[in-house]
Amino acid sequence: MEEQAFLARIRERLGRQDGAPVAPYRRGAPEFWTGRSLSSADRVSTFVERFAQQGGQAWVCPDLTDLHNRLEGFLRDLAPPAIGVWGGDTLKEFQIDGLLARFTVLRWGEAPAKSFADTHVGITGCAAAIADTGTLMMAADAWRGRSVHLLPTVHIALLHARQIKTRLGEALPKPGERVPSSLHFVSGPSRSSDIENDLSIGVHGPAAVYALVLAVEGT
């Protein structure tokens, strides 16, 4: 159907005039919700707790050395044949290149996108995290491919404590802001209860999601 005819039918049924102004309304979450704010320490502890409730695991790392030790521990245990990583300088602050040297690493923007289908671990940063719900937000661009955290069995996200917001509304795009082609909010591993209500993990997306939260400013 032609677009204007389609819209005109709606307008007629509603009894509205073409170009009639839009009435004001109470937009967004209730004020008691948007008015809340957690201290930075509470944001971190709430995120870690809620992320675990969602079936993920998050650790607070006091410094880079601790973060490296934990990441190295994961990779030693997982022994992945191939690791996918965000490309360019996106993870520079976390200084993980040396640690990854012993592994087969595919970098987004350098290795072909299709080859990420065979990665077992994906390492990414995030655009923001949300304390209320234990959520990671990934925004796509040339160096931050969607496949890096979508296709592997294990997703490891590296983030700074300062990236953790209290609530979802703070991480969502503001009016007029340029919105990335893909904004992906991830709260724990892939789950399904479709077989006799029995929870199963990793039916399509990653079966394990880890977050390493760097508590001090990166160098």
């Binding site: 719900t133 040339a142 969607r146 496949s147 591993p189 209860s193």
Partner: peptide, 24 residues
């Protein structure tokens, strides 16, 4: 819907992939 505090994946697509992006 399911009594979950939050959905596991909330995915927001704004147009197709953009210049320089290798997936989507």
């Amino acid at each position: 819907a399911t009594g979950q505090n939050v959905i596991t994946y909330m995915s927001c697509f704004t147009g197709p992939r953009r210049d320089g992006e290798a997936d989507g």
